[in-house]
Design a protein around this nucleic acid. Structure first.
Lengths: 136, 136
DNA sequence: TTTTATGCAAAAGTTTTGCACTGAC
DNA sequence: GTCAGTGCAAAACTTTTGCATAAAA
């Protein structure tokens, strides 16, 4: 997904394109790792010195609601990344060192459905943490 | 795991057995769902009216550190449950209605190891949410 | 010009910390 | 009697909300 595509989605949904939002879009398009609100704020602060946290939170929330970003829960708080455009359902390998994410085109739910007859699965979380080929 | 076994672990590690901690042990031994600090506080408050939140948090942390409890991260905060005594590595089916958990003796990591040669897995999260046979 | 986005200030929610006092051993 | 546990108060941290002003369309 390009910066322009992200901005188009925002426009189509009636959002206004501010300088901050452009930079925010660039940040997420160029990052494969999952970012905390704090990290996003730090990054944007380099350009917009008076940037407030509430604006960051508001934009992260709005972008998550319109499916541009995806939200994940971790021990150290919520993290955000660009919503995977891949048509196919998949999961992620997440590097503990560089924090980059790599798509894993495998889902264990087929197997689970065979094993759990008394339970009706609705959703699931599956994430693998470890070291990528550059970091291991 | 029985209440007495939990208390024994606490004693062995040098913790003192207070009335509150006895009740806390009973709560977790009798609950298969994952509880938030808030829920634990509510429950214990029924018996100990002046109960403070910091004591609840302290005890949850101490019990987690000595592996009596297990900690999970969710959208609505940390949750705790008795550490699974099962020898075998497993995951959980979690009911969205009654919040009970059911062991799932299946782990997708064997499959993942075959698929991801460039990535060295260290740990993983796998949880299935849905409706149990009583709730569906 | 109209309406949305932003910054500021403050609040709400969760978790942690320091300290004096109480209670377990 | 000694040391750990508790309650209280306050702080730290993350996220949210209300309102006046600034900026996008």
């Amino acid at each position: 997904m390009t910066v322009q595509e992200v901005l188009n989605v925002m426009s189509e949904k009636g959002l206004r394109i501010t300088e901050q939002r452009k930079t925010l879009a660039e940040l997420f398009v160029n990052t494969t790792s999952q970012l905390t609100a704090k990290q996003v704020h730090s990054f944007l602060s380099q350009t917009y010195s008076g940037l407030s946290f509430d604006t960051v939170y508001r934009n992260l929330r709005v972008l998550t609601e319109m499916n541009v970003l995806e939200q994940f829960v971790f021990e150290d708080g919520m993290k955000f990344k660009l919503h995977c455009s891949s048509e196919e359902h998949h999961h992620h390998l997440i590097c503990l060192q560089c924090e980059k994410t790599f798509p894993l085109h495998y889902c264990p739910m087929e197997e689970v459905k065979h094993l759990s007859h008394d339970f009706e699965p609705v959703k699931h979380k599956f994430e693998v943490f470890g070291y990528c080929k550059d970091c291991k």
